[in-house]
Design a protein around this nucleic acid. Structure first.
Length: 270
DNA sequence: CATCGGACCTGTTAGC
DNA sequence: TGCTAACAGGTCCGAT
């Protein structure tokens, strides 16, 4: 489900309900997420106010004076703020109970997500190796060109590598490469500086626009307020195998790169 | 180092 | 209608 726009949509949805609220309790029903939920999360959160909710890459960080709870949504995770009497659904793995009688509820059928704790001055190892945010000024064509030097793997993998730039997953990689006119199979080290410039701009534009539209809802992503995202209607190639390219009419091609489906126009992308 | 495949899970859908 | 296989928005880890 969640790439950067969906995580940012989630952040914007929950932060107004969490900021300033004191955490009363963490109720973990199913600790077997990607990693077991450590006791340190409850110890860190209880009886202190949440100061703010940040996003770094696809991680959400609930900050308080002691440190940060780290939440990743994996493939199928979602967060909602609910009244305490809302009935449980399947795969509701934990609740964060707040001092106003509401709670933050985490649901994740596949359990690829996580809930971890980062003590105040430290940076968790998961966050330490991340590349720049796509909206950082340092993320541009020159940066991509330099990092791609000597890399033989497909540029799509390069773009989805969170150590290169964060936030781009399978959907938005396909969309950004289409917009930049680059074949996803092309070796990263064989992409020109000019085309990397177009790619960096495409990533910024597409992610920014998807955030404005509330993310992409393919089957089950819902914003914390229960509304779907509306970016799906604007997808150019993702999930459109065999349908006409919106630019040239050529049927959209699909290939398997690594273990992931990739969609592209063989005429518009070289 | 970079690259590749497998692993972790459940739910939905395509195909027979 | 029912069974099975393939596939799904992520990313870590170990082998090469």
């Amino acid at each position: 489900m969640p790439e950067l726009p969906e995580v940012e949509t989630t952040r914007r949805g929950i932060e107004p309900h969490l900021a300033g609220r004191i955490v009363r309790r963490l109720l973990v029903r199913e600790p077997r997420l990607r990693w077991p939920v450590p006791d340190a999360v409850a110890d860190g959160l209880i009886d202190l106010p949440v100061e703010r909710v940040r996003r770094r890459a696809k991680y959400l960080l609930l900050d308080n004076p002691r440190g940060s709870a780290i939440v990743h949504l994996g493939m199928s995770g979602s967060l909602r703020v609910l009244d305490v009497d809302v009935p449980l659904k399947a795969h509701d793995h934990w609740d964060l109970l707040l001092d106003d009688g509401r709670l933050l509820r985490y649901n994740d059928p596949r359990r690829f997500g996580c809930l971890l704790w980062q003590p105040a001055p430290e940076v968790h190892p998961l966050l330490a190796q991340l590349g720049p945010e796509p909206f950082d000024s340092g993320f541009d064509g020159g940066y991509l060109y330099a990092r791609a030097h000597g890399r033989s793997g497909p540029v799509k993998h390069f773009l989805m590598d969170q150590a290169i730039v964060v936030g781009v997953g399978n959907i938005y990689a396909a969309e950004a490469l289409f917009r930049a006119g680059i074949d996803p199979r092309r070796a990263a080290g064989r992409v020109s500086r000019a085309r990397f410039e177009a790619l960096a701009q495409a990533v910024k534009a597409i992610l920014g626009h998807a955030i404005e539209r509330g993310g992409t809802t393919l089957r089950d992503f819902l914003r914390p307020d229960g509304e779907p995202g509306y970016f799906e209607q604007e997808l150019q190639v993702y999930g459109r195998a065999g349908e006409p390219c919106r630019v040239c009419g050529t049927p959209v091609a699909s290939v398997r790169l690594g273990q992931r489906s990739s969609f592209y126009c063989r005429k518009c992308q070289r």
